[in-house]
């Protein structure tokens, strides 16, 4: 897998604040990479830096091996071959759908390309309409078609679904994956919604405070978050305190083996689906709440020592409030810091 976009040690600062702080990101070509982070983390700045709308203070940006931005140079956006889909779509209101889509296309096959691209996004016959005559989803498709029509190496999408209602959003996510993969273009999508990032991205990069804190496939990042913060940001996570003793940490809900030296304190992260309760007459805890979703269910358990934990179980298991349970954990991640693990 070759690298299509590479940001290396990129810093962007203005007015005394730093939007990107020694930011590193490699985007593999042909895949859809979702950049996710809380609002204000700098993800839109990163996207704008790739597109060329934002100059960078330090570092380098490379697009398909071409250096496009350094401390001192900045290839203007129009010469980067990057397509962009904007949050509010930014369709040109004064020209038709066909003219919007054909705006970036030059050459003899312009008309043909516009038609093919509109077919790709499912908007055949919309050529002569104007942006204000379209629904949100249709505008989104035009925006995507416009970005794809010139045949860019890279497409950037800035919160592309935030202006759509929930059902449209679900449908457009699937459509987007289909279109991106059928074209084979490298895509970077920015979102603040972790569920969206996990669902849509071939790879995801999690950002916090101007940096990429973790990147990888959705499965990797979800299952092996590099910090409690990432764990919490990407999904539900329980963080339990514990101290290593004799090669294990007793979390209260189970004992986790560890290589940490005795006396080292650590945080143990457990996702609810890793918790496996079994109904036992004299169990260590009691089921105090249950939300049934159909395909699965969340069960809240209060242990006798007062600890509350959640478990996510398949819908097929029948449990009842007040039943006593024993708890095991299938998986856990132990986080430690250098100073607390000093005894090791």
């Amino acid at each position: 897998m070759t690298t299509a976009i590479s940001l290396s040690d990129v810093t962007v600062s203005f007015n005394g604040t730093t939007a990107l702080d020694r930011f590193d990101l490699d985007v593999p070509s042909g895949a859809l990479t979702a950049v996710v982070g809380p609002s204000g983390c700098g993800k839109t700045t990163a996207l704008r830096a790739i597109a060329g709308f934002q100059t960078i203070t330090t570092g380098t940006i490379t697009l398909n091996g071409q250096l496009v931005a350094t401390e001192t140079t900045n290839t203007p956006p129009e010469r980067r071959g990057v397509g962009m889909v904007f949050q509010e779509f930014a369709l040109f209101p004064h020209i038709s759908v066909a003219e919007n889509v054909g705006y970036g296309v030059r050459g003899a096959d312009r008309v043909d390309r516009v038609r093919r691209t509109l077919r790709l996004v499912g908007l055949e016959g919309y050529e002569d309409r104007f942006p204000h005559e379209l629904s949100g989803g249709e505008q989104q498709r035009v925006a995507l078609a416009r970005a794809l029509a010139p045949g860019p190496d890279v497409v950037l999408l800035d919160e592309p679904f935030s202006n759509l209602d929930a059902p449209q959003r679900e449908r457009m996510r699937r459509e987007l994956r289909r279109i991106i993969h059928s074209v084979g273009v490298t895509a970077v999508l920015v979102t603040h919604d972790q569920a969206e990032a996990l669902a849509v991205g071939d790879r995801i990069a999690v950002m916090s405070e101007g940096r990429v804190v973790q990147s990888g496939t959705p499965v990797e990042v979800y299952a092996r978050p590099v910090s409690p913060w990432v764990a919490r940001f990407l999904g539900e996570a329980m963080i339990l305190d514990g101290v290593a003793e004799g090669g294990a940490i007793d979390t209260g809900i189970g004992v986790v083996p560890t290589s940490l030296a005795d006396g080292a304190s650590a945080k143990v992260m457990v996702r609810p689906e890793w918790v496996r309760p079994t109904v036992v007459d004299h169990g260590v805890g009691k089921i105090v709440d249950r939300e049934f979703y159909g395909h699965d269910q969340r069960v809240a358990i209060r242990l006798d020592d007062g600890t509350s934990i959640d478990a996510l179980l398949p819908g097929s298991i029948d449990v009842a409030l007040g039943e006593r349970v024993d708890v095991e954990i299938d998986d856990a991640i132990v986080y430690f810091t250098n100073d607390t693990a000093g005894a090791r």
């Binding site: 007015n15 939007a19 700098g42 916090s208 986790v256 991640i333 430690f336």
Partner: peptide, 28 residues
């Protein structure tokens, strides 16, 4: 109880960026 080898242990690096990135206003 899971096998010891399957448990992931992760060290959190010291000096995580402290200041929030602040305004998202774009410098041009």
């Amino acid at each position: 109880m899971t096998e010891p080898g399957s448990i992931v242990e992760i060290e959190i690096p010291a000096g995580v960026p402290a200041a929030p990135p602040g305004s998202t206003e774009q410098r041009r």
